[in-house]
Design a protein around this nucleic acid. Structure first.
Lengths: 195, 195
DNA sequence: CGAATCATTGAGGAATTTCAAGTGGTGTGG
DNA sequence: CCACACCACTTGAAATTCCTCAATGATTCG
């Protein structure tokens, strides 16, 4: 079921809202943000996709979101029509897709829980734990996305995200080695904020 | 694939967090809320389910959420194991499930967008439009859920929800015929707030 | 009718946003 | 190699929004 490998530079559009959902995608290297633009120009990010992650499957008719490379990324692009042909033969595949959408769903539910959380600390703690789980083996996380991306994901402003990073560091919950590199120093404190 | 019809009284638990996801459910009559309890006792509602809606499918291992009847409800309860047997024969069914999870996913994305919206008016406007789309043919909506339910869905307090209802009415965006009955008087104004 | 539950309203306080200024890296050209 | 510009991020102060606490009002049900 190999598709085509495409390299996207930083900030390149992968698909835009309203376009037909004729392909699905798998991140081989890099990072992708999927987002919606609100009427007043604000941006709500629906998810980040990291190596191995599939995305672009869920929209049935036209795309509801934009997808964009956060940094230079290698993406496997697969024709959707191919999927259906394969699916007819292999129920394995389609149940795999079912599993995938289930996980996506669980992820979105988790995001909704996080956004339902009221304080900025709770949201950022939840975010850092999620990212650590997805792209770190130990407690050091290299964030591929900017503060603005995080803000748009968590429904906060960039200033609040920045201040909250500082607060978590002052509380010894995290260390900020560099802007993009964070160490989870006290996971329990973060978990306590999260749930 | 008929399951068992069960009548749940108001506020009855349908399943609890941590229980095995051995059944799926379809609302025949009534309304259901699915929610998570946070450590500090707050409640985040992940979705409302209305007649015809399926729920309880997405959790693979143990339940991540609670499900509860908002009012007296008739629910079709279907053993999950039966599904798999049927699915092996009918790829129709399993692709129907795929469609269902896709829709659920779209719904959760929409919720996340709404929660990412900053103001209470934006969130409530989005909620009212969603509900009108799901349970009204015209502009009159009979809400099955309480103000507290709405608050927990939108990540707000009951007081803010109440005040925001009043604001929308004062702005002539809605009419409040009774607590549970709302007329969307100016959809454009609501849509303007929503997206 | 009275009790209980749910909803509305008010006042004060806490958190986030907004607006504005300043810091710190990074890259480019002199 | 340094000066400069540029960009992302941080920090500060004031304004706004929402939350908390409290009291009141409305609806339902026994």
């Amino acid at each position: 079921m190999a598709g085509t490998l495409v390299n996207f530079p930083r900030a390149a559009q992968i698909y835009v809202e309203g376009s037909s959902a004729s392909h699905i995608y798998q991140v081989l290297d890099g990072a992708v943000r999927v987002y919606k633009l609100l009427a007043d120009g604000r941006r709500q990010i629906g998810g980040f996709y990291l190596p191995q992650d599939l995305f672009g499957l869920e929209e049935n008719d036209g795309r509801q979101f934009f997808a964009e490379a956060i940094k230079a990324s290698s993406i496997l692009v697969i024709k959707r029509s191919k999927l259906k042909v394969l699916a007819a033969r292999q129920s394995e595949l389609i149940s795999g897709l079912l599993l995938h959408t289930s996980r996506e769903l669980a992820h979105m539910r988790n995001l909704a829980i996080m956004l339902g959380c009221k304080t900025a600390q709770e949201r950022l703690a939840g975010f850092l734990l999620e990212m650590a789980g997805r792209l770190s083996k130990d407690d050091t996380v290299d964030l591929p996305m900017s503060r603005q991306d995080i803000a748009d994901y968590l429904g906060l402003t960039i200033e609040t995200v920045s201040r909250t990073f500082t607060q978590l560091e002052n509380q010894s919950s995290i260390d900020i080695l560099s802007r993009r590199r964070v160490v989870l120093r006290n996971r329990n404190a973060l978990v306590g904020l999260d749930a």
